[in-house]
Nucleic acid binder design. Structure first.
Lengths: 335, 335
DNA sequence: TACCCCATTGATATCGTTGTCAAAATACAT
DNA sequence: ATGTATTTTGACAACGATATCAATGGGGTA
C-alpha cells in the first residue's frame, strides 16, 4: 500500500541504510548511488514515515509556537511568518496557547515538547521574558527562539525590533509638528516593549527640552478598553494635551473614541498616535499615525534561525534586530 | 531514562499488552488489574511515546486546522475555540495555511494528512464549500468537520450559523428604525455566508414592501478596501440611501471611513450596519450595529464532534446551527 | 607486493508502542 | 461433574525508519 524504504531499496538495488543516507543527505554516498536512489524515490513516490523517523531519531520535524493571548492580528502575523518559513523546510507548525501566570506552565510545556518530540519553540511576549521558564528550557536542552525579548542574550536566538528608537522618532516627529504638550499611554507592564517605548518617549521629550505632565501619562495594558479609560480620565480635566502617544494602536483607538465621544475633533482638537500599524490603524477615521513593525518578517526570521540551528546550519544563524517604519497619517496635525 | 510500557509492566507485574490495554481504555480488563496498572503508571510518571503509538496504530492524536487567509480576528477566534476542545481531550493542533485556488491543493493536503497521520481536519470558508476537495477527502477516508458550509450535508459534520435569519432580522431592525432606502454591500462571492446574508436582506426588504435600488447594492469581498470603494461609489452620487448594511464589519468600517471623508456624519446623515461583531465594531466611533456570531463556540463544537466521531463516541456527535445575536450600537439611527 | 587508510555499503539490532492470536482463567449451562 | 462460552491475559510479530558496527574495495605509501 504505502511505499517504504524497503521498496525503494529493492528498486534501486541498494541497502535500506543507503536509501536512508540519501534521504537524510548524509555524507559519504557515492554520487552515482545517490542518483539511482533519488530516481527510485521519485518513481515510487516515496515519502518517509514521520512517526517512524520520529520514534527512532527523536526528531519530529515539528516546531511549536507558544503564545499567551496576544493581540489577534499580531498572532495572525506571527503565525503567517513562521508558516512561510516552515513551508520552505518541510517542517510543520503546532500551536500552543498557554497561560503565563500558571504555576505549572513549565511542566505543561516540557511534557508537551517531550510528548510530541517538538524540535524547537518560538516564544512571543510575554513568554519571551520569563527567565525562569527559559532557564528550564535550557536545562532540558530544548531549542527555542524568542520574539522581542527585553534582554537580548548573546547565546540565545532572538528577533527584536527597535522599539526604543521608533518611539523616540515618533515622539520627535510629534514635537516637530509643533506639539509641546504630549501625553503617553503605557502598555502592559509585563511586555518588554512597554518600557522600551516609554523610555523612547521620555528621552525624546527631555532631549527636546520639553516637560511631561503626570496627568497625561497613564498606565494601560495594550487593550482598547484601557486606552479608552485613560482617555476618559485625561479628557475629564480642563487641561488637556495637544497630542497623545499611545503605546499601541488598540489603545490609540480607545483614546480616539473617548475623545470623539467628548466632542473633540481629531486631529483639530487633539492629535493621536499609536504603535504597531495594526489593521485598525488604517480602518478608522481619521487614520492613525503609527509605527509599523515587520512582525511577519520577524517571526519568519525567528523560525528560520531556529530551524537552521538544529539542522546544524551556521550560515545566517543570527539573531537580528529589525527596523520599524514611521507611518504618518491623518491623526497627527501640524500646529 | 524515559519510562516505557515495559517498566510499568514490570512494576505492576502484568504483561506489556495489559498495560497498553489500560492506557487505551480497552474493554475486558479486570477492574483490579486496571487499578494496579494505573498506580504504577502514576508512580513512575509514565507517558506513552506518541511517535511509537502513531507508528503502530496510525493515529497521531493531532487534528489540523485548514484555512485560507481569513479575517485575522476570525482566525484567532476559530483557533481558540478548537484549542479549548483539544485541551480537554489531549489532542494537539497543527495549523495549515493553504491556497484554495491552487491546483494541487488536494494533493498537498492529502500528503500533509498522510505524513503526519493527522486524525481529522477542520475547514473554514471558503474551503468548507469546495466540493471537489471534500470529495477527495471522503474518498481517502479522511475525517473532517466544516465550519459554515453553504450546503449542509446530513452525512458530514458541520457547524453553521443562521446567517440568513440574522441578516433578515438586522434588515428588519433597520427598517423598524424608519429606514426605507437601504443599501447593501455583498461579501466574497466564494463564501457561503455572502449569499445567505444577501438573501436575508432581500427577503426582509421585499416582505416589508420596500424596494431596492441597484445603485446601492455593491459587490465587495469582505475586505476593508472593498467596503471603502463601494462607499466612495455610493456617496459619489446625489441620491444616497439613509442606511447601508455591509455584510461584514471590515467593509462597514470602510463605508464609514468613506462617508466621514465625504463629510457625512454617522449616524445623522447615514446609518451603517455590519456583520460579525469583530473587534473593530466596538473600537470605532460611532460603534457599529452588527450581528455577533459565536465563532469561538462554533469552532469549539466543530472540534468536539470531530474528535468524538473518530473516538467512536456517538453522544453529542451532532452537527449544529448556532444562533447569532443582534448588537445594536450607535451607528444606527431612528429616523 | 604488502600494508594501511578511508570512502562506501550493508546486515542487523533497535526505538516503544499496538495488533494478532492463542492460552489461561472464569462463568454458565446441562 | 462436564463441556462450552466468555472474559482476561500474555508471547511475539510488526509498524518503518535510523544507529551501530563490521565488511568491502580502491588508492596511496613503503
Amino acid at each position: 500500500m504505502t511505499v517504504t524504504i524497503k521498496d525503494v531499496s529493492k528498486d534501486a538495488k541498494v541497502s535500506i541504510k543507503t536509501v536512508s543516507r540519501v534521504i537524510n543527505n548524509e555524507a559519504n554516498v557515492a554520487e552515482e548511488t545517490k542518483k539511482k536512489v533519488l530516481v527510485s524515490v521519485k518513481k515510487l513516490g516515496f515519502r518517509p514515515n514521520k512517526s517512524a523517523q520520529s520514534l527512532r531519531s527523536k526528531r519530529s520535524f515539528i516546531i511549536a509556537l507558544l503564545y499567551d493571548n496576544p493581540n489577534k492580528s499580531y498572532l495572525a502575523d506571527v503565525q503567517s511568518g513562521i508558516f512561510k518559513a516552515c513551508k520552505l523546510t518541510g517542517y510543520n507548525l503546532v500551536i500552543q496557547e498557554c497561560d503565563y501566570k500558571s504555576p505549572d506552565l513549565n511542566n505543561t510545556i516540557l511534557e508537551f515538547v517531550n510528548d510530541l518530540k517538538i524540535d524547537g519553540l518560538i516564544l512571543t511576549p510575554p513568554l519571551s521574558d520569563m527567565d525562569d521558564f527559559l532557564k528550564d528550557l535550557d536545562k532540558n536542552k530544548i531549542e527555542y527562539a524568542v520574539i522581542a525579548p527585553s534582554t537580548k542574550k548573546a547565546e540565545s536566538l532572538y528577533v527584536s525590533s527597535n522599539d526604543y528608537e521608533a518611539a523616540y522618532k515618533l515622539t520627535s516627529e510629534i514635537i516637530k509638528h509643533g506639539h509641546k504638550q504630549i501625553g503617553f499611554i503605557k502598555g502592559h507592564p509585563k511586555h518588554s516593549a512597554s518600557s522600551l517605548r516609554f523610555n523612547g518617549f521620555i528621552d525624546a521629550i527631555v532631549n527636546h527640552s520639553l516637560e511631561t505632565n503626570d496627568d497625561w501619562i497613564k498606565q494601560g495594558n495594550f487593550s482598547f478598553k484601557s486606552g479608552f479609560d485613560a482617555g476618559v480620565e485625561i479628557f475629564h480635566s480642563e487641561n488637556i494635551p495637544s497630542a497623545i502617544f499611545a503605546s499601541n494602536d488598540s489603545m490609540a483607538a480607545g483614546i480616539m473614541k473617548s475623545a470623539q465621544m467628548k466632542g473633540l475633533k481629531i486631529p483639530d482638537d487633539i492629535s493621536i498616535a499609536g504603535f504597531d500599524d495594526s489593521p485598525i490603524a488604517d480602518e478608522i477615521w481619521p487614520a492613525l499615525t503609527t509605527v509599523r513593525q515587520p512582525v511577519e518578517k520577524m517571526a519568519n526570521h525567528a523560525a528560520k534561525i531556529l530551524m537552521a540551528k538544529f539542522n546544524g546550519i551556521e550560515e545566517s544563524n543570527q539573531s537580528k534586530e529589525f527596523k520599524s517604519d514611521l507611518i504618518l497619517r491623518e491623526s497627527l496635525k501640524t500646529l
